[in-house]
C-alpha cells in the first residue's frame, strides 16, 4: 500500500493540490493552477509545499506534534481565504478521493481495500487535527475581531472605567 502510494506520490500530491486550490473563487483557482511556476504565487506555493509534507507524513505515520505546525501553516492561510470553515478543512477529505482514483487500476489486489481503509484512518486523524487547527484559527480571528473593536474605542472605555478583564485573554502559548 505505502509502496504503491509512494510510487504515485507525485501524481497524488499534484491532484491533491489541485483539489485544494479548487476551493478558491473560480478565476483565482484557475489562475493558481495555470501559473505552473510554483513560486509565482505564494499562496498556491505554500499549499503545495505543505501538502507534500503532509502526504509524506501520512505515509510515514509521523506523530501529531510534528504534523500540527505544518498543518497550521495551511490552515492559517486557508482560514482567511474567504472560504468557510468546512471548506478550509475539506482539502483533507479530498485526499481520500484522490487516492482512490490513483489506485483504481490496482483494484484487483485483494488486500488493497483493507490497507486502503487503514490509510484512510490516518487521513481521518489528520482531518481531526485540521478541524482542531481550523477552529483555533477561526477562534483567533473572532478574538482578534473583538479585541480590535475594543482597541478602537480604548480611551473611551478607559474613561468610562470599563472592566478590561472580560476581554478575551491573549491566546495561550502565543507568548505575547
Amino acid at each position: 500500500m505505502d509502496e504503491q502510494l509512494q510510487a504515485k506520490r507525485a501524481e497524488i500530491v499534484r491532484a491533491w493540490v489541485e483539489r485544494t486550490v479548487e476551493m478558491y473563487p473560480a478565476d483565482a483557482a484557475k489562475f493558481l493552477l495555470r501559473v505552473n511556476d510554483p513560486f509565482s504565487n505564494p499562496v498556491g506555493t505554500t499549499i503545495a509545499l505543505e501538502l507534500e509534507f503532509l502526504f509524506d507524513a501520512l505515509l510515514r505515520d509521523v506523530p501529531p506534534d510534528e504534523v500540527v505546525p505544518r498543518l497550521d501553516r495551511v490552515i492559517q492561510i486557508t482560514s482567511v481565504q474567504d472560504v468557510g470553515s468546512a471548506r478550509a478543512v475539506s482539502f483533507v477529505f479530498a485526499l481520500k478521493e484522490v487516492i482512490r482514483r490513483a489506485l483504481a487500476a490496482d483494484r484487483a489486489d485483494a488486500g488493497l481495500l483493507r490497507r486502503c481503509l487503514e490509510f484512510e484512518q490516518r487521513i481521518d486523524a489528520l482531518a481531526l487535527l485540521a478541524f482542531d487547527s481550523c477552529s483555533r484559527f477561526l477562534q483567533r480571528i473572532a478574538d482578534i475581531r473583538v479585541r480590535e473593536a475594543k482597541r478602537r474605542v480604548w480611551s473611551l472605555m478607559r474613561m468610562l472605567k470599563v472592566d478590561w478583564d472580560h476581554l478575551p485573554a491573549e491566546e495561550e502559548g502565543a507568548g505575547g
Partner: peptide, 11 residues
Amino acid sequence: TKAEVRAGGRL
C-alpha cells in the same frame, strides 16, 4: 523583485 515562498512557508 519576485515574490516567492520557500520551504518553511517563508515569503
